[in-house]
Design a binder for these strands. Structure first.
Ligand code: MN
Ligand code: MN
Ligand code: ZN
Ligand code: ZN
Lengths: 137, 137
DNA sequence: TCCTAGTTTATAATTATTCTAAACTAGTAA
DNA sequence: TTACTAGTTTAGAATAATTATAAACTAGGA
């Protein structure tokens, strides 16, 4: 699905040199079927598991920030102390389970709003997010 | 509106001794017309402005946590590095302006949803929040 | 008034993240 | 090819928010 060439083009198109670190991180992030909701820590675990490769934590942070600026990932709203990111950059919504701290995607069309307020003057709506917090039944 | 007695009762009812620090913090938080969206830092500024009273930052944090646990305030979802709290504990929604980092309340009935997805099995919905991010028109 | 569990406080510790500056490398041009 | 350089990576230091520690204080009942 995400061949090396595609990844390199993606990086080039956002003025990011396709270094081996960025290519590896991009592979881990984008070469998967399901959305990946992650923190710097979880990404670091995925990348640096059991002495395989070795990418510094600083590069993990730098790359996440670069990918975010380039629009390849987006940051998620949480009230966790860590920043959460999402490989799904389409407008969509989330279930949040405070017990497991896991987010699950909700397709945009699964939520239908038929009334929303007007934004304050001088402002327009950039994005609308719905977060549905869960609890045990 | 929020007399000292009411505040003391509120504290007592949640098993919090009405100390002078908690009473003062509660007054600053709850004795106001508009919702207060705050961080530990902004609350500390409100409390410890120009050499008036003096409550330690540790107590600010302790009290915010205690009030949150007691359900007198709630934490807000943001992607800011600081934790945001809200004196409006009713279910409601927010505009978020990333430029000013300010939140504005949206009344619950200002947003009408006529389709929401079913929660995963074993779970039920605890809360549903809508955050509308703004940008310059 | 005395007692004690609960609270406050200064300060240290921790955690997530950003900064720094030196070493490295991708890409280009000689 | 080789040399150059701007961009990148990295270890480690610095910062910022928050939490933990433990000693001093206090609310409120006996
Ligand atoms: Mn937060
Ligand atoms: Mn957050
Ligand atoms: Zn998502
Ligand atoms: Zn609010």
């Amino acid at each position: 699905m995400h061949q090396k060439k595609e990844i390199i083009n993606k990086l080039r198109s956002s003025n990011l040199r396709p270094t081996k670190q960025r290519i590896l991180i991009a592979k881990k992030l984008f070469d998967r079927k399901e959305t990946f909701h992650f923190t710097a820590e979880t990404l670091n675990q995925v990348i640096n598991k059991k002495g395989q490769s070795r990418i510094s934590l600083a590069t993990i942070y730098n790359t996440v920030e670069a990918f975010k600026k380039a629009g390849h990932i987006r940051e998620i709203l949480t009230n966790n102390s860590k920043s959460y990111y999402d490989t799904n950059i389409k407008s969509h919504h989330h279930f949040y389970d405070p017990e497991t701290k896991k987010l699950t995607d909700i397709d945009y069309q699964e939520v239908v709003l038929n009334k929303i307020p007007n934004p304050p003057k001088g402002k327009k709506i950039k994005d609308l997010e719905v977060i549905i917090s869960l609890q045990k039944k």
